[in-house]
Design a protein around this nucleic acid. Structure first.
Length: 921
RNA sequence: ACCCGGGUGGUGGAACUGGUAGACACGCAGGACUUAAAAUCCUGUUCGCAGUAAUGCGAGUGACGGUUCAAUUCCGUUCCCGGGUACCA
């Protein structure tokens, strides 16, 4: 009987589906384990071989945990709202609901072919009304909550209202509050809500017709599509994520994320400690407020810089400088964010004519404006210390501003030195202090004089939460006389109206603004923007726990049972977007007592990117339409992408004329389009093309589709091969070269049970000690490797095991049956088939995992390597229970050792039990 | 510029807490079976030198230096690659 993977895999997939072997229940007395993948955005391109890497890893871990006696939740769903679906819809004229539906069914069938153990009854889709009803509901909870700065947690806004009514606050008395109009009260409350509406500078993308969040803008262009992004003042919804900045930082200590992932989040949050300080402006009633992390350098301040957008600029500029400033402001306005970021090195600025007074020595400090100071960070104004800050130094040199040295020989006049180890000079009351220590002394003094205070700043901004788009969750908000009225929970879901045409609405509003009958309600006008893509993904892991609940987003009993995600697998691209938002939502729900844990993901595993191989034709320098063989030396040559080249080129990046003809045929191209100068070798015409590894992408024509491989080799081979490629976390080039090896392994396993001609060959004979040893060695290794997600070495351990068993012709059920159970997570189909061939009933997933018995692996002797001066020269077999003196004696008797000693006495003999022996001469 | 990763055969990669570097696999070379092919099996495969051979010797984990009986592993300097952030005061 042959290993007919095609038939066998199909049969078992049907059988599993029919018998609902992957159904998961919350009612269980087993310990729980929650294994989650970052759910995919169902794009039209379908899955490529990079996607399943993480899914296979999580599937292996889930099955392993299930066999180990855990009740495992391992769900899958779709992040189906979002920009690309709408862009695609606009381009093709199809409704996003239709394309999304179609794409999801493609994804599901692709996933099912790989044999994942998802309980599809728990599937969630963020664009389903039954799902986004609860996204809207959680939004309302955010709207109805504020961040209490004393308790450092979210509380119902009603608590705050009660307080205002009884006691008022710093800004108003209770009486004043009670006399406020409804609108005035709402305006005050809006400044505290966790989901709030405000006018602010937003990232506006004209091409996409929408606002984008900071993490959706990369280098001044949109992450999706690369369109230019500009700043624009608009009314927008925001999430007050900055309130949680400290807790988001602290929470990182309690989770198992990679150090680099934590670092990325810390950088994004960007906490800095310093002081805010007021400077009197000469001849003005206004003060200049600056933020600094280095108050110790106060005596080194040689000038001030404020952002061009700063409010003070208009009032402090002197008449002499007015013209210059106007000119500079026009110049700044003409520059896009992109240009500003691209030309960081360029120093520009303009003197306002005004002076600030140093409160400690009365020195007059010129106030400048410059692009390098950002309006959005700190106070939008800085005190510049050229001897200690490289940018300030460059600025001072460029504009010939005299530089004060407060750090003595630490400053060399050539560049700034940001040290904290210098002893201060020219620094009044700080003279003689170490800078590190002076920081606190300076702030104390500043606070004492009442001219400033300690201040922590964050780089992170509140997250923009509205999009002027159609394909997203509508806000459950109605506007009436400038007041945002929330819908009642009973009115949810507020369904997205189904329309056939959707272009942008008037005045930068979203498409929903065009649907008058939907917008106009008896109570007022509906909010017409929709929620961003990350809304639905910020809490989906909770919905899987209780996906069909119509009473609440997730029953507290279910979330208490399943609790945190034990293992979360996904790419690093979500480091600062999704992962921060979902962490924040979890903290809010926790604060409000709706769930019992405040970090959603206990352990995060980042799968590496699988890159595809792309190939390029090199064109000849003299005749630009000629394609010639690629030579490394010709750096100045130009290249043309060879689409789908990975299907035609051999491992040396050689393209034969024969393969090229096939390419022309496959792509229905004519030879005339290519003017190739062929080379010949053994009568075969070929050229060499340039090879490069790039991210797999449809637009780069370097994508490999898992379906093809599953058809050719089967799902089990595909799964094991993706794991065998290397560590899950490493990024690696895709190459199908090695897949044969894994396929051979599975056939070899099959042949231990069946012979192609003779049929069944497995037996009921009793296993020998040697066979049992192989089994237990394997159990130990597989268990260790799976627990530490080292799936590549586990695959290799299986290969070693099967090679060993084949070598000694072991066909014994007693051994093979146990191996099958170990292998289930990696190759679920073949193991299920062979399990039944051995006469077992029921799914192998319900078998009990083999128990490792260390006693069976104890050896009495070991083949020790003997080194002479650190170099291995001989091997001797020694009993393990020998003492140092016995070992020394035996080692010295050894022929090779004697040869190296040349009659001399060794200086020392090092014996490490169970490891090695080193003779030092 | 700063912060994280990472540099090991022709290739993907292995090596626990410092203890036989190159497991496993691909590829390649040779052989067996076969009319032939596929499949399968066997042998070899880090590099250099010597030898018919078994084998022996030397070098070797980006480079240089250090600690140690012993370093891919620890420390210092430096080069290269990947990722992140970027006038953040």
């Amino acid at each position: 009987m042959e290993y007919n993977f095609k038939e066998l895999e199909q049969n078992w997939q049907l059988n599993w589906k029919k018998n609902k072997v992957y159904k998961v229940s919350t009612e269980s007395d087993k310990p729980k384990c929650y294994v989650l993948d970052m759910f995919p955005y169902p794009s039209g391109a379908g899955l490529h071989v990079g996607h399943p890497l993480g899914y296979i890893a999580s599937d292996i871990y889930s099955r392993y945990k299930r066999l180990k006696g855990f009740n495992v939740l391992h769900p899958m769903g779709f992040d189906s709202f979002g920009l690309p679906a709408e862009q695609y819809a606009i381009e093709t004229g199809q409704h996003p609901a239709d394309t999304t539906e179609k794409n999801i069914s493609t994804f599901k069938s692709q996933l099912d072919k790989i044999g994942f153990c998802y309980d599809w009854e728990r599937e969630v889709r963020t664009s389903d009304a039954s799902y986004y009803k609860w996204t809207q509901w959680i939004f309302l909870r955010l709207f109805h909550s504020y961040f209490c700065n004393t308790q450092k947690k979210a509380r119902p806004i009603s608590d705050l209202i009660a307080k205002y009514e009884k006691k008022g606050c710093n800004n108003f008395t209770a009486e004043e509050w009670n006399n406020y109009s409804k609108k005035e009260q709402e305006d005050v409350l809006m400044k505290r809500r966790l989901a709030f509406c405000a006018y602010g500078e937003v990232n506006w993308c004209e091409a996409l017709g929408t606002v984008l969040a900071n993490d959706e803008v990369v280098n001044g262009v949109s992450e999706r599509g690369g369109h230019p992004v500009e700043k624009k003042k608009m009314r927008q919804w925001y999430l007050r994520i900055t309130s949680y900045a400290d807790r988001l930082l602290e929470g990182l200590e309690k989770v198992e994320f990679s150090e680099s992932m934590k670092e990325m989040q810390r950088n994004w949050i960007g906490k800095s400690q310093g002081a805010e300080m007021d400077f009197v402006i000469k001849g003005s009633t206004q003060n200049l407020k600056v933020y600094t992390t280095r108050p110790d350098t106060i005596f080194g301040v040689d000038f001030m810089v404020v952002a061009p957008e700063h409010d003070l600029v208009a009032t402090i500029t002197t008449t002499d400088q007015k013209a210059e400033i106007e000119k500079y402001l026009t110049y700044v306005k003409s520059r896009s964010d992109r240009e500003r970021q691209a030309e960081v090195k360029q120093i520009t600025g303009c003197f306002t004519g005004a002076y600030a007074i140093n409160p400690f020595d009365g020195k007059e400090i010129p106030i400048w404006i410059a692009e390098y100071v950002l309006a959005g960070y700190g106070t939008g104004a800085i005190m510049a210390v050229p001897c200690g800050d490289q940018r300030d130094f460059g600025f001072a040199k460029h504009f010939n501003i005299p530089i004060t040295n407060i750090i003595g020989e630490y400053y060399n006049g050539e560049e700034a030195n940001a040290t904290k180890d210098a002893v201060l000079e020219n620094s009044g009351f700080l003279n003689g202090l170490l800078m590190k220590d002076a920081i606190n002394v300076a702030v104390d003094k500043i606070e004492e004089l009442g001219i400033g205070k300690r201040k922590v700043n964050f780089r992170m901004r509140d997250a923009g939460f509205s999009r002027q788009r159609y394909w997203g969750e509508p806000f459950p908000i109605i506007w009436s006389d400038g007041i945002a009225l929330p819908l009642d929970a009973a009115e949810l879901p507020l369904e997205l109206p189904h329309v056939d045409k959707y272009g942008p609405g008037p005045e930068g509003e979203g498409p929903l603004a065009n649907i008058k009958e939907w917008v106009v309600t008896p109570n007022g006008l509906r909010e017409t923007s929709t929620m961003p893509g990350y809304a639905g993904s910020s809490w989906y892991f909770l919905r899987y726990m209780d996906p069909h609940n119509t009473e609440t987003f997730c029953d507290r009993k279910a979330s208490d049972y399943w609790n945190q995600v034990d293992l979360y697998i996904g790419g690093t691209e979500h480091a600062v977007g999704h992962l921060l938002y979902s962490r924040m939502w979890t903290k809010v729900l926790f604060d409000l007592g709706l769930i019992g844990f405040e970090e959603p993901f206990k352990k995060l595993l980042n799968q590496g990117m699988i890159t595809g191989k792309s190939y390029f034709f090199m064109t000849s320098q003299s005749e630009t339409d000629q394609i010639v063989s690629y030579k490394k030396q010709d750096e100045s040559a130009s290249f043309k992408r060879f689409k789908y080249g990975h299907n035609y080129v051999d491992s040396n990046a050689k393209l034969t004329k024969k393969a090229f003809e096939k390419y022309l045929q496959d792509q229905s191209l004519s030879e005339n389009e290519f003017n190739i100068i062929w080379e010949t070798d053994n009568d075969e015409a070929f050229i060499v093309v340039k090879e490069e590894s790039e991210k797999m992408s449809k637009s780069k024509f370097n994508v490999d589709n898992p379906d093809d491989l599953v058809i050719k080799y089967g799902a089990d081979t595909f799964r094991m091969y993706e794991m065998f490629l290397g560590p899950v976390e490493a990024s690696k080039p895709w190459d199908t070269k090695g897949i044969e090896g894994v396929h051979r392994f599975l056939r070899k396993l099959w042949r231990l049970f069946n012979d192609d001609l003779k049929g069944k060959v497995w037996t009921d004979e009793k296993a020998t000690d040697a066979e049992i040893k192989i089994l237990h060695r394997t159990i130990k290794k597989i268990e260790e490797d799976t627990e530490k997600y080292s799936f590549n070495t586990a695959v290799s351990a299986f290969m070693i095991c099967i090679n060993d068993l084949a070598d000694i012709k072991c066909n014994k059920k007693e051994i093979l049956e146990q191996i099958l159970i170990l292998l289930v997570p990696y190759a679920p189909h073949i193991t299920e088939e062979l399990w039944h061939q051995l006469g077992n009933e029921g799914s192998i997933l319900d078998a009990s995992y083999p128990a490792f018995n260390p006693a069976l692996l104890i050896e009495s002797s070991k083949e020790y390597p003997v080194s002479i001066n650190g170099k291995v020269r001989a091997n001797i077999n020694l009993a393990l229970d020998l003492q140092q003196s016995d070992v020394e004696k035996l080692v010295l008797e050894n022929e090779t050792v004697q040869k190296w000693l040349e009659g001399k006495e060794p200086k020392k003999i090092i014996y490490v039990k169970n490891k090695m022996i080193n003779v030092v001469i």
